[in-house]
């Protein structure tokens, strides 16, 4: 195991973490603002990939597929939140079962529309190449994933810190009752956050589709990992989600490379420990 191994593994881990950030960043905000355990979040990821495929098949444009898929799934999330989750009130168990129900419905719908085969989203030619730095090959696509996650992360962070909407979201995360008390429409904030979460997850699905593929079952495969990110980083904290994504991305890569037999255990055991010792996560607000 030489330096090259470590460099490549770190690079792979970070780029996987970037994808996880897209998937889990929104979930973390949803958790923070609404305390909803949304088990259909993995479905948004999967649906994003499928919708993108349809766009690519019909228009032959990968660039167009990204916003169309993300916006479509954002609308799906928005409708789910407005019509079903909001009237449900605060009961984690019922939220879990309702969102699982939707996950099954989405799974069957996707199966009916797109079939049961594992599909690939091919990115444009120039992203499939590799750059050589110091004799080590870096796939450009993975660098692109890191770039997208960075851009998205910075945009959301600026929105959260600098705009009125962002301040309302932060207030709702910290203390939604007080936020309501000072006249913030937390219902509107929830709707916005939920749609944003679905948007980001779908975006992750499109971008991740190039190297994870899109297939039935992807939703429930990716879902627990998203929760690991949210828990380790801390709910409702964007910075936490970023750090959590990096930790999980790296742990996943090194786990699989170094001790494959316990690689998933090394992912979820820290999640258990953090929940037991500091339930708000490493960077969560108290």
């Amino acid at each position: 195991m030489d330096a090259e191994f470590w460099v490549i593994q770190v690079f792979n881990g970070i780029s996987y973490g970037a994808l996880l950030f897209l998937l889990a960043g929104g979930l973390s905000l949803i958790f923070g603002v609404m305390r909803i355990v949304n088990l259909s979040h993995g479905s948004y990821f999967m649906l994003g990939g499928y919708v993108a495929l349809t766009v690519i098949w019909t228009t032959d444009s990968w660039v167009l597929a990204i916003p169309v898929a993300a916006l479509t799934v954002a609308v799906v999330g928005l409708v789910m939140e407005r019509v079903f989750l909001r009237p449900l009130g605060f009961d984690p168990l019922r939220q879990v079962l309702l969102t699982v129900g939707f996950a099954f419905l989405f799974q069957q719908g996707a199966l009916d529309i797109w079939g049961g085969d594992s599909l690939d989203i091919s990115p444009p030619e120039f992203l499939t190449e590799s750059v050589v730095i110091g004799g080590v090959y870096f796939p450009l696509y993975r660098a692109f994933m890191i770039g997208v996650a960075l851009a998205i992360g910075v945009t959301i962070w600026l929105t959260m810190e600098k705009t009125r909407m962002g301040a309302m979201v932060r207030a709702a995360v910290d203390d939604s009752e007080m936020a309501r008390g000072v006249g913030i429409d937390t219902s509107l904030v929830s709707m916005f956050i939920f749609a944003l979460g679905a948007f980001l997850a779908a975006l992750g699905g499109v971008i991740g589709g190039a190297f994870l593929g899109v297939y039935p079952g992807l939703d429930f495969e990716i879902l627990p990992i998203a929760f690991a990110v949210v828990i380790i980083g801390g709910m409702g904290s964007l910075g936490g989600a970023a750090v959590g994504s990096l930790i999980v991305g790296l742990a996943d890569n090194f786990g699989k490379a170094l001790f494959p037999e316990v690689s998933y255990f090394t992912l979820y055991a820290p999640m258990v420990l953090i929940l037991a010792l500091k339930p708000t996560g490493l960077f969560g607000r108290e």
Binding site: V96, E261, Y264, F265
Partner: peptide
């Protein structure tokens, strides 16, 4: 919510060992 999450994580630990 935290009980839901921690039991999910514990279940995933068992799954991870079974799978890998």
């Amino acid at each position: 919510v935290y009980f839901l999450m921690i039991t999910l994580a514990l279940g995933q630990c068992v799954w991870g060992l079974a799978y890998r």
